[in-house]
Design a protein around this nucleic acid. Structure first.
Lengths: 136, 136
DNA sequence: CTTGCTCCTGTAGTGGCTACAGGAAGTAGA
DNA sequence: TCTACTTCCTGTAGCCACTACAGGAGCAAG
């Protein structure tokens, strides 16, 4: 059994974040030592690591909770998981496209921007009436 | 002069958001009618529009405030603007790269995921010890 | 005058943490 | 055993950029 500091090291989840996950019911409450300190088993640490990896993949907490309940039930809901992963992929793709459009807009705006100009053409363009951004 | 609803329509900034911007000192307080309602001039609406466009480009509020103070001073700090825009571009590029790495990771994880499987290989992989994500 | 719309203020909630403050428990060395 | 140091505890508040109420007031059309 490990104290929260060790659990944090092993899972890669910040100590404060672990306590936050517990408060929010995202991971189950661990046991406590005689002195009132949290004690984590390997399984509980694995769960924390799982949450961190899902977060790293950009999954929101709500989805991760579904994942956790599926693994708890040893459910055969691989299809369900796949659907959620695919939806998430769609969101990631949408974000990438958005950012790329944004990059183009910003590039073309800042292109005319040169040191020493009296009025910044970028700020000018953004202030003007007839200006429209691609599809933000 | 326009009430907040019209100002919202013309600037594309949500009514609640306009009030929020005012509270936070991001845009100056407008005048008021006899009955206490906010009244916006065309210039003030242009400022709101400017903020929205900058937000659409992903600039954080703090940067936009700098932009606004530069346009207020009619400053010739185009170089400054360009630097900030370039920093922002770097951030956008970093985000895009991150998302693309993430997409690859998610794709390779969910690839083995097929309907009807007893234990989902994706969740399995995320739960296991030896697994490492690219560079999240 | 009534209906219905817009507007007002103030407060609280969102997501996913992060950062304290003020104290208790545990550990290592003298 | 005493002391110094570290880790842990709870509880609360802050971050960003909004968004969503509640409960009331102003205003225009019919």
């Amino acid at each position: 059994m490990f104290t929260i500091g060790k659990a944090s090291e092993q899972s890669g989840v910040n100590v404060e974040t672990i306590r936050y996950y517990e408060r929010e019911g995202i991971v189950p409450k661990p046991g406590r030592s005689a002195g009132g300190r949290r004690l984590y088993s390997n399984d509980e640490i694995a769960k924390l690591r799982f949450v961190r990896r899902c977060r790293d993949l950009g999954f929101p907490i709500a989805i991760i909770q579904t994942f956790l309940s599926l693994t708890d039930q040893n459910d055969r809901s691989c299809g369900e998981v796949k659907t959620m992963a695919e939806n998430h992929l769609d969101e990631i793709n949408a974000k990438i496209e958005n950012l790329m459009r944004l990059r183009e807009a910003l590039l073309s705006l800042s292109k005319n921007c040169d040191d020493g100009t009296a009025a910044c053409p970028m700020l000018d363009a953004l202030m003007k009436d007839g200006f429209g951004l691609g599809a933000p």
